Simulated assay, not measured.
Amino acid sequence: METTITPTRSPLTAFGDAANESAARHVFQLYQDRRPPNTQRGQRAALKTFTAFLRFCGIAPTGDLYEDPNAWRGITFGLLQAFQLWMVKQGYSVGTVNGRVSTVRFYMGLANQAGHIPDGEILKAQQVKGYSRKEALDLDTRRKAEGTATRRGAKKPQAVTITEEQATALCKVRNDTPQGKRDALLMALFIFHGLRVSEIASLTVESFDMEKRMMTFTRFKTGRVSRHRIRGQAWQRLTAYLQNDHPGSGGLWLASRKGSGELIPGSSMSIQAIGQRVADLGVGIGLDHLSPHDCRHAGATFIASDPKASMAGLMNWGAWESASSASRYIEAGQADNDLVSLGCDE
């Protein structure tokens, strides 16, 4: 009589298998919990578009693609490729197409970790590339010739250009009211310090060390704490606002009364209200559709227009973690031969 010996799993093996199963079930949540709210909103929007594409194809996802790894079972690189082409034909901007393809491809990778998409599909999906700058220009030229839209929605295709003279006008105290001084400070911090609107909205009086002339604030996009030395116009606007019009503590941006320009004690300006105020101030000097990000863009371009500006300095100013994000301002702000002296002799 033969005896069959059945291998037994060690406690460590059993525990490791259980840990793998738990990690697979929660792979989306573990990743999402580490992402800032703006990133989460963008990914939800991308996966909502992908779901719309699947429904257009007559496919009903088995679950929420943002929440449920199992809902990705059956998603292939071919569907990813078709999704990219569908968005192009639907008139999405190239930036949106690239971003949403990247998001879907990334979530395919997470679903692969959970065991729902085979390794081979992931390898193929990595070959579904976004459009390069040259390819994007060629694509939009073809789409325009065919009568296909190159952008959906109300988002501007390009930032509003602000000249140095217009920047000075935006940072000028337009009238001797608390509102006028607040607005001048607001624009000075946007343009000369490049804060994002969420960073501006979070500022308090306590964000400023008046003795050291230093502003400390959180970059919510990266979680980094930044310090900026306040000088020039921004310092003048800050001292005028705090010494004469602000109660001296708490949130920096108090709402104001229409007509009188008086500040409302205990009030605050939301991100949306700040954005609308920037737009209104832009209209006042002939700039339509001005946004807070246009001001940050302008400040970065002013810095990059100086041939002496360093990449490190620009990256620190704008809190960009990659040189590629900052380099586009160098490209826009300088001529290609600004950094060489050949041919300068008269």
Rank of each mutant, 00 (worst) to 15 (best):
residue 280 D to N: 12
residue 276 Q to M: 12
residue 288 D to G: 10
residue 257 R to M: 13
residue 259 G to R: 03
residue 272 Q to T: 15
residue 275 G to Y: 08
residue 285 I to N: 00
residue 274 I to A: 14
residue 266 G to W: 04
residue 262 E to W: 08
residue 274 I to K: 08
residue 273 A to L: 09
residue 280 D to S: 13
residue 281 L to I: 07
residue 290 L to F: 01
residue 289 H to N: 13
residue 288 D to C: 08
residue 279 A to G: 04
residue 257 R to Q: 12
residue 287 L to V: 08
residue 269 M to P: 04
residue 261 G to A: 09
residue 272 Q to V: 13
residue 286 G to H: 00
residue 284 G to M: 13
residue 283 V to K: 14
residue 278 V to Y: 08
residue 259 G to P: 03
residue 268 S to I: 08
residue 277 R to E: 14
residue 282 G to T: 04
residue 287 L to P: 05
residue 262 E to Y: 04
residue 289 H to K: 10
residue 278 V to T: 09
residue 271 I to C: 12
residue 278 V to M: 03
residue 274 I to D: 12
residue 282 G to A: 05
residue 265 P to V: 11
residue 290 L to K: 03
residue 261 G to K: 02
residue 267 S to M: 08
residue 261 G to Y: 01
residue 276 Q to Y: 14
residue 279 A to M: 06
residue 273 A to R: 14
residue 262 E to P: 01
residue 268 S to C: 10
residue 276 Q to A: 14
residue 261 G to L: 01
residue 268 S to E: 13
residue 256 S to D: 01
residue 288 D to N: 09
residue 278 V to H: 02
residue 256 S to P: 01
residue 263 L to I: 10
residue 280 D to V: 10
residue 273 A to H: 11
residue 264 I to A: 02
residue 260 S to V: 09
residue 258 K to I: 00
residue 280 D to M: 12
residue 277 R to S: 05
residue 285 I to F: 03
residue 256 S to F: 14
residue 267 S to G: 02
residue 289 H to T: 07
residue 272 Q to F: 12
residue 277 R to L: 12
residue 284 G to V: 03
residue 282 G to N: 05
residue 289 H to F: 09
residue 273 A to Q: 15
residue 258 K to D: 14
residue 290 L to V: 00
residue 266 G to P: 10
residue 260 S to I: 07
residue 270 S to H: 09
residue 282 G to I: 06
residue 281 L to Y: 06
residue 266 G to L: 04
residue 259 G to T: 01
residue 266 G to T: 01
residue 261 G to E: 02
residue 286 G to C: 03
residue 261 G to R: 03
residue 278 V to A: 04
residue 282 G to K: 04
residue 265 P to H: 06
residue 275 G to C: 08
residue 290 L to P: 01
residue 271 I to E: 15
residue 273 A to E: 14
residue 267 S to P: 05
residue 259 G to H: 03
residue 281 L to G: 05
residue 266 G to H: 04
residue 278 V to D: 02
residue 284 G to L: 11
residue 278 V to N: 02
residue 265 P to R: 05
residue 271 I to Q: 04
residue 282 G to S: 08
residue 279 A to L: 06
residue 277 R to H: 04
residue 262 E to G: 07
residue 257 R to I: 11
residue 271 I to V: 15
residue 270 S to T: 15
residue 290 L to T: 00
residue 270 S to R: 10
